[in-house]
Write a protein that binds this DNA or RNA. Structure first.
Lengths: 229, 229
DNA sequence: ACCACTAAATGAATGCCGTTCATTTAGGAT
DNA sequence: ATCCTAAATGAACGGCATTCATTTAGTGGT
């Protein structure tokens, strides 16, 4: 009886999100793509605190319970959103530029996309690729790029995972408050760190998060690059 | 006058647990240290799903509302737990071993501590150090180690942040399901990545997460080490 | 043209959750 | 003995995700 939660091939296709007249039910008003788009829009407007099954239903002119015919949980919606966002990550450089440049472009865009969606990180980081086809497609593009660049087969996945872990952690960093390292009244007991914070070199970047991301990313690119055959 | 609506969220400088005979208040059944200890124990027993203000109150034989005399929100409790956990991170090597070994020991222990507490990561990553004295103490130990090793002042914080970002991301990775990269029925459309997954080299480690962590960490240690004067 | 079947929507109900608040309790200070 | 006040209580409150019996309206078969 319950509707399938993830079926790639849907019998009922295209139906925008028109407002059916109120009152009693209608024909197909909802599908996963429509839910995903509405969710993304809602998140953009209200943030993740405002992202509620009730609020999502409201933007779709539907009762909250109706969503559960197309999705099995709120987490499910987050997975749909996550996978959709992944298609905004730029992997194009992997077949247009040298390996190191491609990794650079990919990593920065990956970080930028998800720094605006950090609540999704705990979801992505642990999600089987089977549940996220577009994410899998990204891995394929990246993995192919590594292989083409002469990366040893046995280390491709580990290298990607290491980069991705760094990217996720760095995405949080982007959202941290500027004064996160102000030691305030405790400065006396932490002289070394306090001094280091004060003398931090921005190296021409706008934000400290960018300096740190550049530093770590370039370290990995250089060292990983040396693994190529 | 009714009772105050919000308890002090500020741990302030004293974090010992002496019975302050400041000559004011009444019998104390609850305090922040007791709450922190109970919270940690509850999390260990029931996980973060079972970690509820009501459940926490129950283990302390107290009404849920009583907690709010000592803590201003559930998030506050998480901050206390987070800061407490940080004292389990091993920074001892920074005054006993060479820089690279010290970073290694610190990073692995940091990752191991928080891989069991990933729900805290979104909290830590964005938390001003002022609210977490033990965390600040850790930064001081690490920062001092970097300075002593001849690290250029202006880059100490960026290097630590980069390492920490990598550590946080990698902590998630530890908790990922083993088959997270099984592409299942989609294997045909992702030949490169699927092959890379199949041929992944474990390099003698138990878990793929450890291989990736080692790879990224050693890259950073080597490259950052070259920055020392 | 009828009818049976079924996917999809409803709205009420459920059970939890974090948090608030008026009130009570009991120790130290004067 | 009395006042003062921090700390504890228990009953609310509003919000949340999710479930379920029921209703609706299209579709496909005869």
């Amino acid at each position: 009886m319950p509707a399938p939660t993830s079926a790639p091939a849907d019998p009922h296709r295209h139906d925008a999100k028109p407002r059916r007249r109120v009152g009693r039910p209608a024909a197909a008003v909802l599908d996963q793509d429509g839910i995903t788009a509405a969710a993304l829009q809602l998140i953009g407007k209200s943030g993740y605190e405002g992202f509620t099954m009730a609020a999502l239903a409201r933007t779709l002119n539907v009762a909250p319970s109706a969503l559960y015919n197309h999705v099995s949980s709120k987490r499910d919606v987050l997975v749909l959103v996550q996978d959709h966002l992944t298609s905004f990550v730029d992997v194009s450089a992997f077949d247009a530029e040298p390996w190191d440049q491609a990794v650079r472009r990919w990593a920065w865009s990956y970080r930028d996309v998800f720094s605006k969606h950090t609540p999704l990180i705990p979801v992505i980081a642990v999600l089987p690729v089977t549940d996220a086809p577009k994410t899998l497609a990204m891995y394929e593009a990246v993995g192919a790029g590594f292989a083409r660049a002469g990366f040893p087969q046995g280390r491709i996945v580990s290298a990607i995972v290491a980069l991705e872990s760094f990217i996720f952690g760095s995405a949080y960093d982007v959202t941290a408050p500027e004064d996160i390292f102000d030691s305030g009244s405790m400065a006396d007991s932490t002289p070394n760190f306090t001094a280091a914070v004060q003398h931090q070199d921005l190296e021409g970047y706008d934000k400290p998060a960018d300096v740190a991301f550049n530093l770590g990313l370039e370290a990995m690119i250089e060292r990983f690059g040396a693994l190529r055959g």
